[in-house]
Design a protein around this nucleic acid. Structure first.
Length: 261
DNA sequence: ATGGCTAACATGGTTAGA
């Protein structure tokens, strides 16, 4: 019987890696995760701060572009890059990175925002989610332990929304995108945060405007989804609000899950 | 009423986020 070990994973939309490097170092000192998936690095690969990440004690894979989007996976132990983007979904936007870490397949995802229900960007969001479901299905067919984590830009349920009445039908909560997320989950994944008792009004993103963080007027749109066999090995999950309280923060805060493997 | 912040790119004001 192999010895059980604890593996801690997290995801965080940093809203510019360059601006948030000090916060990242501070966070990883407080929460020495085994794997951290970043979104919105907004960094071209040629300019990626490999050395700064290395000095934090982490290896890193990255898939970026100029100005927008960009994803990166940090880990203490070696990883192998499996793919960039989604098979069969030709996309110039750098939003998905898939890697193998020991027996785990890790998918770092930055789902499109969608701008407004019915817009071109909303249509793109739904197509992206369909391609993401296919990507995850193909991975889960070959690997029992798949985790997909990042900024989904969808609040799964009304309890993930500070004021559901105000948000009815809006992008991030609308029926079609919730349905698309539901299809991913129904294909064999679990939102591990909800496997444990959590405080009401737990959110992962707060608008910079109108003192939303101070009023806890937020949404839970950053998710860790684990394949069913892996989800059974999840022992805890939490949102770490602390980095959102720091000076000049990202508008998102990290989400963490611990597994017994 | 379409604002209110923040970041990138650029160096003033637009694009995008969510």
């Amino acid at each position: 019987m192999p010895k059980q070990k604890s593996v801690k994973l997290g995801c965080w939309n940093v809203n510019s890696l360059k601006v948030r490097l000090e916060h990242l170092a501070e966070f990883l000192t407080a929460q020495p995760l085994d794997i951290l998936a970043l979104q919105e690095t907004k960094t071209q690969d040629e300019q990626f701060p490999i050395e700064a990440i290395r000095s934090m004690g982490y290896q890193v894979l990255f898939h970026g572009q100029k100005t927008y989007n960009g994803v990166a996976i940090l880990s203490k132990q070696p990883m192998e890059e499996l793919s960039r983007g989604l098979a069969g979904f030709d996309d110039p936007q750098a939003r998905v990175l898939t890697a193998k870490w020991q027996d785990l397949v890790v998918v770092d995802v930055y789902v499109p925002n969608g701008q407004a229900v019915g817009s071109d960007k909303y249509v793109y969001k739904l197509k992206f989610l369909d391609a993401l479901r296919n990507h995850l299905q193909a991975l889960a067919d070959r690997h029992p332990n798949v985790v997909v984590m990042g900024d989904f830009n969808i609040a799964p349920e009304d309890r993930d929304v500070h004021d559901p009445k105000k948000w009815v039908g809006e992008v991030l909560v609308s029926a079609d995108e919730r349905q698309a997320l539901g299809e991913i989950i129904q294909s064999g994944f679990r939102d591990v945060y909800r496997q444990f008792p959590q405080e009401e009004h737990s959110f992962s993103w707060w608008d910079y405007r109108k003192a939303c963080f101070e009023r806890n007027a937020g949404l839970r749109i950053d998710l860790i989804l684990a394949s069913t066999p892996l989800a059974a090995r999840c022992v805890s999950s939490m949102i770490d609000r602390l980095p959102r309280s720091w000076e000049r923060p990202s508008d998102h805060t990290p989400v963490i899950a611990e597994f017994s493997l």
